[in-house]
Amino acid sequence: MNYVSIDIGGTFIKYGVMDTNHVFQFQSKVETKVNIDDAIYHQVEAIITEQKHAYTISGVGISTAGIVDRNKGEIVYAGPTIPNYAGTAFKKRLTERLNVPVYVENDVNAAMLGEVWKGAAKGADNVYCLTLGTGIGGAHYDNHRLIDGANLKADSIGYLLYDPETKLNYEQRASTSALNNVLKSELGNAFHAEKAFELARSGDMKCYDVIYKWTAEVAKGLAQIILMKDPAIILIGGGISRQGDYLLNLIKNQLTIFLPAHFLNTELKIAQLYNDAALYGAVFPFFKED
């Protein structure tokens, strides 16, 4: 038995096939098409069909941007990153078309499940996951379940901290995309996050200053999460989490500025599965009784 795992983002669709030993037989990715005439749904269907020709497929797990009704397996809200996406009924259409069980989950929720199953939060409870990427996503895992909210919109933290003067919210100031924009604006088009971190580690003060200011913006949002949720652990995920302890220490050193004195008890950790976390989490429902 094998399971197709698919992670739909605004830029790429990543996918792989996991066997019963929780090992990916292979992984690949394709560019996400502009979502006209259900283009993304058709990409997903084509990926699954291709894998059914190569493997015996017992189920499909989908991680996706947008707010998901996991019972219906349907997108109920999507921001501007993927247009025309709300209403996409993955579970109903794929089950009818391909005759396989399908789970659909929000991508940050899926990343959380992956980290709780196989990553930095293995065996833990009351964990908050924040992913830094094109935007910023949040997920809260408490009492061994995901916390969704009454309207499935809990932890839409990218919209926190809106500033009417700049007209920017949390993710527009603190996402990896925001960091890249500032680097290009202040240091030139050749600069991006990975290069800037490398130079900052080597003593480049211009890069360090930009990164320092950006991590202060990240810390502001983390402080709000701690004040509202009081999680035991906060995981920092997304591709930039590969910067590891260097990134974590910059955030930690500024986090207390935004909290009352002696208030911080939450442990901050770097996610271990990086960009694969959601691929693990997408298929976790098939294995959770293991």
Score class of each variant (00 low, 15 high):
residue 196 A to I: 08
residue 181 N to Y: 13
residue 179 L to E: 05
residue 118 K to R: 15
residue 194 E to L: 10
residue 133 G to Q: 00
residue 107 D to E: 09
residue 19 D to Q: 12
residue 80 P to V: 09
residue 182 V to D: 07
residue 128 Y to P: 04
residue 195 K to D: 09
residue 224 Q to A: 11
residue 200 A to Q: 08
residue 212 Y to M: 08
residue 244 G to S: 11
residue 103 Y to V: 07
residue 227 L to E: 07
residue 110 A to G: 07
residue 75 I to H: 06
residue 204 D to R: 10
residue 197 F to R: 00
residue 287 F to E: 05
residue 191 F to W: 12
residue 80 P to K: 14
residue 257 I to R: 13
residue 52 K to L: 02
residue 100 V to E: 03
residue 54 A to K: 15
residue 184 K to E: 13
residue 112 M to L: 15
residue 139 A to R: 01
residue 70 R to V: 00
residue 67 I to Q: 03
residue 167 K to C: 06
residue 69 D to H: 00
residue 203 G to A: 11
residue 66 G to Y: 05
residue 242 R to P: 06
residue 82 I to Q: 04
residue 21 N to Q: 15
residue 259 L to G: 04
residue 258 F to R: 08
residue 266 T to M: 09
residue 220 K to M: 11
residue 286 F to H: 04
residue 92 K to T: 09
residue 74 E to I: 00
residue 17 V to D: 06
residue 51 Q to A: 12
residue 220 K to F: 03
residue 267 E to T: 13
residue 196 A to H: 04
residue 67 I to A: 03
residue 190 A to C: 11
residue 145 R to E: 15
residue 284 F to D: 03
residue 236 I to S: 06
residue 119 G to Y: 03
residue 127 V to H: 01
residue 118 K to Y: 10
residue 33 K to G: 08
residue 2 N to H: 15
residue 2 N to T: 14
residue 197 F to K: 05
residue 23 V to S: 12
residue 37 D to G: 05
residue 134 T to Y: 04
residue 61 G to R: 02
residue 99 N to A: 12
residue 264 L to N: 12
residue 132 L to E: 04
residue 60 V to D: 01
residue 31 E to H: 11
residue 81 T to L: 14
residue 281 G to E: 00
residue 213 K to M: 14
residue 277 A to M: 05
residue 38 D to E: 12
residue 285 P to Q: 05
residue 100 V to C: 10
residue 116 V to L: 14
residue 213 K to L: 14
residue 206 K to W: 06
residue 23 V to H: 13
residue 10 G to H: 09
residue 201 R to K: 15
residue 266 T to N: 04
residue 97 R to T: 11
residue 132 L to V: 10
residue 146 L to D: 02
residue 213 K to G: 11
residue 240 I to H: 05
residue 196 A to R: 08
residue 208 Y to A: 03
residue 261 A to V: 12
residue 210 V to T: 09
residue 176 T to P: 04
residue 117 W to A: 07
residue 69 D to F: 06
residue 87 G to S: 09
residue 204 D to T: 09
residue 94 L to T: 02
residue 1 M to H: 14
residue 52 K to N: 05
residue 15 Y to E: 02
residue 14 K to P: 01
residue 283 V to H: 07
residue 118 K to I: 10
residue 273 L to P: 05
residue 238 G to A: 06
residue 176 T to H: 08
residue 174 A to M: 10
residue 184 K to A: 11
residue 107 D to I: 04
residue 258 F to E: 01
residue 223 A to G: 03
residue 53 H to N: 14
residue 28 S to T: 13
residue 61 G to Q: 08
residue 148 D to Q: 14
residue 177 S to W: 10
residue 249 N to H: 15
residue 183 L to H: 01
residue 280 Y to G: 01
residue 227 L to Q: 13
residue 21 N to Y: 12
residue 149 G to E: 11
residue 286 F to W: 02
residue 67 I to N: 08
residue 159 Y to L: 13
residue 131 T to W: 03
residue 166 T to F: 09
residue 172 Q to P: 02
residue 96 E to C: 00
residue 15 Y to K: 00
residue 208 Y to P: 02
residue 118 K to D: 07
residue 113 L to Y: 03
residue 16 G to N: 08
residue 89 A to V: 03
residue 287 F to R: 12
residue 53 H to C: 10
residue 129 C to H: 02
residue 13 I to Y: 07
residue 229 K to M: 10
